[in-house]
């Protein structure tokens, strides 16, 4: 296999039946994919499980890649979604503690900042995880990755207006949920069931 093959060529080779192409593609970007899984999950064991879920999904759905974004962006999005799915599934369980950090290299303030940043990231991941899939996809593309509405609409195979409404609904839920997650006392324990079409 040529070392010069692009990511797109490797993915196409995988779809065509090359048994080694997908592994080579993942190996090429393993550190980047690992980093996003670790940041999103906050725990190395959970990150590994989520990454395996994601890569199995990508392996099976490779023929659905349409080349609108880079292969790395596509892979990255699948990893993020797998992480969020895993967070949603575990949401019924007690919150897992933040991973222990080696604070030798941090000042006390830096360590506090680091923990605060991790807490924020976990809150955001939990709030995103609770969005319906179509709203989450729209929010990830538009608000997180910064794609123009028209491009996101093409990727999601729906009209631009639908992307806008999904983003709007998703944002409204996110704003409410982030307030609840940041202030647990303000959260009404009796939740209303999800209502209305997405």
């Amino acid at each position: 296999m040529s070392a010069e093959q692009s990511d797109e060529e490797l993915l196409a080779a995988h779809v065509a039946g090359d048994p080694h192409a997908f592994s080579e593609l993942v190996f090429r970007h393993r550190d980047r994919l690992w980093a996003v899984a670790l940041r999103t999950m906050g725990d190395s064991h959970e990150a590994e499980d989520a990454l395996q879920d994601a890569l199995i999904s990508a392996f099976r759905r490779a023929e659905q890649f349409r080349g609108e974004a880079k292969v790395t962006t596509w892979l990255h999005r699948i990893v993020v979604n797998a992480c969020l799915d895993r967070i949603r599934r575990r949401s019924a369980r007690p919150t897992s503690p933040l991973p222990e950090h080696d604070t030798h290299d941090f000042g006390l303030q830096a360590a506090d900042d680091h923990i605060e940043q991790r807490e924020t990231q976990i809150l955001i991941a939990e709030a995103l995880a609770e969005l319906p899939q179509d709203q989450r996809d729209a929010v990830l593309l538009v608000d997180v990755e910064g794609w123009p509405i028209e491009d996101a609409a093409r990727m999601l195979n729906c009209p631009s207006g639908t992307v806008k409404s999904r983003c709007s609904r998703g944002r409204a839920k996110l704003a409410k949920r982030l307030v609840e997650l940041r202030n647990p006392q303000s959260h009404d324990p009796v939740q209303n069931p999800e209502g209305g079409p997405s």
Binding site: V36, A125, L140
Partner: peptide, 29 residues
């Protein structure tokens, strides 16, 4: 759909760790 559009994302920059282009370097696998 358009009428619902216009509010700012509540995520702001805090979700940039999920952005493949802006995510900070992490540890190696």
């Amino acid at each position: 759909d358009d009428a619902m559009w216009g509010e700012e994302s509540p995520l702001g920059d805090e979700a940039s760790f999920l952005n493949p282009e802006r995510a900070p370097q992490g540890p190696s696998m």
